[in-house]
Amino acid sequence: MADKPAKVLVRRHSGVTRITHWLNVLAVSLLLMSGLQIFNAHPALYWGAKSTFADPWVSMRKVEVAGQPRGITTVGDLTFDTTGLFGWSGAEGAREQRGFPAWATVPSWRDLGAGRSWHFFFAWVFVLNGLVYWAWGLIGGHVARDLLPTRAQLRPRNILHEIATHARLQFPRGEAARTYNVIQKLTYLLVIVVLLPLMVLTGLCMSPGFNATVPGLIDLFGGRQSARTIHFLSASGIVLFIVVHLALVVVSGLWNNIRSMITGRYAIEVSGEVEGKRP
């Protein structure tokens, strides 16, 4: 075989990873949008057990400025004019007072009861799907084999090198592309070990029934309003992950990435004798 690089398809994602990934896409998208619907019923955040209505640390509302309605967002002592996005949004002439705009919520119109129906249904989907993924990931070895960084990967030199190449949007090629790099591994672990479970735990702590059942957990988060705030921040972290994840999917080979998450096969360029199937 010549030394000329050849494209081969390697098996990247197992069936369980692919199915749970797309179910998670569905559940998380709808949880985010129904969550914003619920948030809009009282678009303010507090710390502690109870609300301090005169002093939320985040709020979105409509105010009149020189006779004109404006959407105002406050974060701590800072105030931002967010007309059209937060607090006061909608088509010109049909604007309404709402925290997040219609395109970010499900349903698009204001309906807290419906938002809660969507939220709790897809929370069950999300939790059951997550349990399947976790059980399979731990027992089947996916977490240990594909997600835990190796000792070599965790060397500061390697981490710095990965950060530098990521910043230049250079991605591993050839043999190095067979496995996740250290930034990928740590990011995925952060999401599946920290952020996603945190959503479930802080979500449960907003349930008065659950709080009577497991009184200790809500204390861990500093009270129900703190749990609600952490739920919101953790969801924001997930949105940030999704934005970066999608951007990197696009720039590191859109079709190759999408194919690998649908069929499981991922194309890499290699030279010499290789394992894998020619396309």
């Binding site: 698009s108 419906a114 969507w118 249904f121 929370a123 069950w124």
Partner: peptide, 29 residues
């Protein structure tokens, strides 16, 4: 999403989760 939100069959399916939640909470509480 908006079409589904007004579909009685779909909203009926969503409401099933309310029963799961109640039974789960009652079972562990």
């Amino acid at each position: 999403c908006d079409r589904l939100a007004t579909n009685p069959t779909f909203t009926g399916v969503l409401k099933v989760a309310e029963k799961w939640t109640k039974h789960a909470q009652r079972a562990v509480t």
